[in-house]
Design a protein around this nucleic acid. Structure first.
Length: 269
DNA sequence: ATTCGGACCTGAAAGC
DNA sequence: TGCTTTCAGGTCCGAA
């Protein structure tokens, strides 16, 4: 499912609902989601652990637990957390894992495609190979320029080791706003183009967080509700519709296995 | 050394 | 109507 804004929305919801709660039990019918530990071992370890902190890094959710443990969840394409009660929605019916909490409530993970990843680390062993957080104030324009590497700009923006958190929706939306073609080489962009991309990145990610993310497909917040950024998106999954800026027909093109959506008229190669 | 396709899964939507 | 193909907010791995 989720890119930075969706994961951020999830983390905000989790902080509100499950911070300082203790896990009393866990259930799954999809043991393969547990990657660096067997499910029986995970179950033994997680019982009685208190959630001291919850934060996002890139597209990862990290629960900082008592006894020096970190629970890491990556929701991949279709994973999303649901707390206690949620809307009756087909996308919320693929419950693969249930965490039982000490207040009698359930924190569930719905994941249609079963790609999600759940791992348990000792806090000191948790190492994520990720680039800077795009919304951090300290990530200024100079730093942005310096992290860029050779390659098509869309793929560079989506490379988690360069910048953490941007995926297919937001790279398309950022490049449309910046009027830059997705296949331009990141290292051959003009100063003006780079400035437009940098600004669009901050604007769009902030706006998407404010709107609770994008729910065109599977993503829901932890109460099962949809985010609203999808309503105002300009190009993502809008192939053959009109560009809202110039009226040209939006194109879709395969780029490294993913679909890039762009306006061929205002994003010239 | 990069890049690309395939794998991992399931279901909705579009095509025939 | 029903069967087939394409597509999906991600990442990893191995072959060109």
């Amino acid at each position: 499912m989720p890119e930075l804004p969706e994961v951020q929305t999830t983390v905000l919801g989790l902080k509100k609902k499950v911070l300082n709660r203790t896990f009393v039990d866990v259930w799954t019918d999809t043991k393969k989601l547990f990657k660096n530990i067997s499910f029986p071992d995970f179950k033994k370890e997680i019982k009685g652990k208190k959630i001291k902190k919850i934060y996002r890094r890139g597209k990862n959710i990290i629960f900082d637990l008592s006894d020096g443990l970190n629970l890491l969840v990556h929701q991949k394409m279709t994973g999303h957390f649901l707390y206690d009660k949620w809307e009756n929605d087909p996308m919320n019916s693929f419950i693969r894992v249930k965490f039982f909490l000490d207040n009698g409530k359930v924190l569930a993970l719905s994941d249609l495609r079963k790609f999600a990843k759940i791992e348990l680390y000792k806090t000191k062993d948790l190492k994520l190979n990720l680039g800077p957080e795009p919304l951090e104030k300290s990530f200024n324009f100079d730093k942005f320029k310096n992290v860029l590497k050779k390659g098509k700009i869309k793929q560079v923006l989506m490379n988690q080791e360069i910048i953490a958190g941007i995926g297919n929706i937001y790279s398309d939306e950022i490049l449309w706003q910046a009027k830059v073609h997705p296949e331009k080489d990141a290292l051959k962009l003009s100063e003006k183009e780079l400035k437009r991309i940098y600004k669009a990145m901050k604007d769009i990610l902030k706006k998407a967080v404010d709107l609770g993310g994008t729910s065109i497909s599977d993503y829901r917040d932890i109460e099962g509700k949809k985010g609203k950024f999808g309503d105002i998106r300009k190009v993502y999954r809008r192939e053959s519709q009109k560009c809202p800026r110039c009226g040209a027909i939006i194109k879709r093109k395969k780029l490294g296995g993913r679909s890039a959506h762009f306006c061929p008229s205002c994003q010239k190669p």
